[in-house]
């Protein structure tokens, strides 16, 4: 889990978001259901104006970051916030693709993000990475290459 102040230095109180996935190891297959339960601590007296919950993939590596949203929920009404904080759960059925991929200059990662918006304009995001599929990490091939004769 990674908790960080997305915008600005950490302002007291600093929230802490813990997440529990329904699968040990956080390994999922395409089209499987993912269920996550999160708990937010350390808000104290800070006023949360909205919470965003999303399931998404993003790219890492040498290229500019790309991002694809699979699930996005924004809760900013008082009743919804009461239900969504300090702890709640949500579930989603994963898509067929893209699969998690650990390439050499391109990586594809899946994660659940919980973003809290506070009165005053600051926001905190908590990211929880999981895997979709079981693609082994890629490595740059060494020259000369081993020949595999076929046909």
């Amino acid at each position: 889990m990674k908790v960080s102040a997305a915008n600005g230095p950490p302002a007291p109180p600093s929230p802490k978001v813990t997440a529990q996935f329904d699968r040990v190891g956080r390994d999922y297959e395409p089209l499987q259901h993912l269920s996550i339960r999160y708990q937010v601590d350390g808000i104290d007296d800070a006023v949360v104006t909205a919470i965003e919950r999303s399931v998404l993939w993003y790219t890492e590596g040498k290229g500019e970051e790309d991002l694809g949203i699979h699930l996005f929920e924004r809760i900013d009404d008082p009743q919804g916030l009461v239900a969504a904080l300090p702890e709640a759960s949500f579930a989603v059925r994963l898509p067929t693709s893209p699969l998690s991929y650990e390439g050499v200059i391109v990586k594809v990662r899946w994660c659940v993000r919980v973003r809290l918006f506070f009165a005053g304009g600051r926001d905190f995001v908590s990211e929880h990475v999981f895997d979709v599929g079981r693609i082994p990490p890629a490595r740059r091939p060494r020259e000369p290459l081993g020949a595999v004769e076929r046909g």
């Binding site: 790219t59 590596g61 290229g63 500019e64 790309d66 893209p98 991929y101 390439g103 693609i135």
Partner: peptide, 9 residues
């Protein structure tokens, strides 16, 4: 890995 294409990767 399957073929993959996004805006920059």
């Amino acid at each position: 890995m399957h073929s993959f294409a996004s805006d920059h990767n």
